[in-house]
Design a protein around this nucleic acid. Structure first.
Lengths: 358, 358
DNA sequence: GCTCAAAAAGATAGCGCTACCATTTTCTTG
DNA sequence: CAAGAAAATGGTAGCGCTATCTTTTTGAGC
């Protein structure tokens, strides 16, 4: 273990700090002194280098480098009365959907000055309220919250926070500030209408977790089925249990028990759909001939499954990315004209919901 | 939209802040004044209520509530010279493995006073170094880093940070501080030995992303194959591309081209394994009769697939959880005796690697 | 070369909280 | 009930940085 340490001993002696404190990390003042400028000038170098003359800029830069200066974020936040933190409230880490959203968020924040501070509400609006209060203490520069079902209290806290806020995942009539999402209701109708157009009559609905967005998908299903005069409550099976692939198979079993003549299933997410496919293989149910399957979200594996599985593509990554982009623009005072962005969806038809598997 | 606002106007008049500043949020001093105690006593209430007498405690509590006091974290961090932030450096958000680790981390931090600050190194040790420096500025209470392959510089930064640090995901000879992981080398040997014991001779290795831990799995494969006198470089196919299920199928195709008489595959993760299974279905290759499959990590879907897929179970959730637990104990000065924790692994044998599919 | 505006640099005074130490109050105990 | 120890409380002085305003320097235009 040879640590090659090229450490040019600085031609500079640190003065003892006030009041017999131990020598902590390098402070801005020390950088300024070494550079031969005032502290405030050194401060400006780190926030807006263009404001310095070239000569001072270079002197501060090399002094900071020589001393290995690291700014103290707490002091900065206290003095400037703001932070460069974007708070993100998301209901789950288990649900892969949010994984993609988070990726978009982190990707978009990269290269910007902003730091993501992510918390997990666990699908509880009370937990959300609590975490929102916690964010209050941090004075974030911006906030991303999931969905539109916040408590009155949460809304009050958000409105009092005095920072831009983006609600993501869905759209609603009364944005706190900005929104990026799509209509789960419409997406669901598209999926179910497709199955109806295929000539399926006994189209089941499989739902798990049943968060507000899934509820709206159920509403879409209801609407489409009623409009086609195909609605039958026995075709619906939901549970509040979190989603897994295994659960998909189990739910299919239960649904078949309550609706034996099922000829299609709309699953509220792709994990359930793949679980359903496996269960069909286990039971010898031909897909799509005997049972058509449509999932939701269009995860990567849907295209690769055998048979390939239809799904509703949602723009999860883009949702996270756009939310951060909109937020940063708003923080920096250049809001775009559109505070509500509909990212839409796309029905992807694959083998699992075609006329014949031929 | 009726916002029912029960706002008992406080029988208390805020004095103008110094120097004509606008009236900002409530400060601790104001709470103290309303409670009729000194600011430092009020401060103590929020950090260690037990230190106050019952009467003062109640007075401060109700004053804080009445004024809706929210402490200023930046001021607290600056004055106390520490934060309650645990920094987490993880290489990927795409890889579901880290999803589980993160879940463990967030779950374990919940209820504690610590906040998780997570960043994504994108499998780059240079990016890691940069992010580590960024954390320096924040003075975190503790740090979780992934793996043992840090740059010299990164190690130096970590050592200078003066906070407990846990390295997760794998074990190594020279911990920066603490470690929670398991031996990827041994786990790989277990998987390959199982296939050898099954009588398979032409056992392929499919790898993607090829991060340091995957490299060690490859080493394990090499060792097991060489020890059994079955080693053949043509059986190995790796790519630096990120993992997807679709990639699994493509890689199988390529591997079959370079080693046509393949009778088993060890995939470095479950996504590849499921992709391989789908590809087998597409090509009419019987699993496990013609081709046995073993994956890695034992994601939930492995048990549900048809046929069910063998895998090496790793304790990802526990890794995250234990890392945080160890960190908090160390931060609070009660380290346990074991700074290096081996969480082990377990070979889960399922249909995809049994003698006969019967 | 002089005037005046703009750019660059600096002095001052906190940001809101807690560490540290001093002081006061309360509780023991012979 | 006095003396000493322990618990509770308070005064003072920053933590390291930046907002604000002032002063100095630079540069453009005639």
């Amino acid at each position: 273990m040879v640590a090659l340490s090229i450490n040019l001993t600085p031609c500079y002696e640190r003065e003892m700090p006030r009041k017999g404190r131990k020598l902590g990390p390098i402070r801005l003042t020390e950088v300024a002194k070494l550079a031969g400028v005032s502290p405030i000038t050194a401060s400006r170098f780190f926030r807006n280098p263009e404001a310095l003359s070239v000569s001072k800029r270079e002197r501060v830069e090399s002094a900071a480098k020589e001393l290995g200066y690291v700014p103290n974020l707490a002091a900065r936040a206290l003095a400037s009365q703001r932070t460069e933190v974007i708070g993100v409230l998301i209901p789950s880490l288990t649900n892969n959907v949010f994984n993609d959203v988070l990726r978009g968020i982190y990707d978009a924040s990269e290269g910007s000055r902003y730091t993501i501070q992510f918390v997990n509400t666990r699908y509880s609006i009370l937990q959300e309220e609590k975490l929102l209060r916690l964010f209050q203490a941090q004075k974030p520069a911006g906030l991303i919250v999931t969905g539109i079902n916040q408590t009155e209290e949460s809304r009050a806290v958000m409105e009092g926070m005095n920072c831009p806020i983006v609600q993501i995942m869905e759209l609603g009539p009364d944005p706190v500030d900005m929104m990026v999402g799509f209509s789960h209701f419409d997406a669901s109708i598209a999926a179910v209408s497709h199955l109806i157009a295929l000539g399926r009559k006994r189209i089941g609905f499989l739902g798990a977790r049943m968060d507000p967005r899934v509820q709206r998908r159920l509403e879409g299903y209801r609407k489409a089925m009623k409009d086609a005069d195909l609605f039958d409550p026995n075709l619906i099976l939901t549970t509040s249990t979190p989603t897994t692939m295994t659960l998909g198979g189990m739910l299919l079993g239960d649904l078949l028990a309550q609706a034996p003549n099922l000829d299609a299933v709309f699953c509220i997410n792709d994990d359930l759909a793949l679980g359903v496919l496996f269960e069909c293989q286990r039971r010898g149910i031909a897909v799509p001939d005997k049972l058509a399957i449509v999932g939701f979200n269009d995860m990567e594996f849907m295209a690769t499954a055998v048979p390939s599985l239809s799904s509703v593509r949602t723009n999860r990554y883009e949702m996270g990315r756009d939310a951060v982009t909109m937020l940063i623009e708003a923080i920096e005072g250049r809001r775009t004209g559109t505070p509500v962005v509909d990212l839409g969806f796309e029905l992807i038809v694959r083998q699992s919901s075609t006329l014949h598997s031929s």
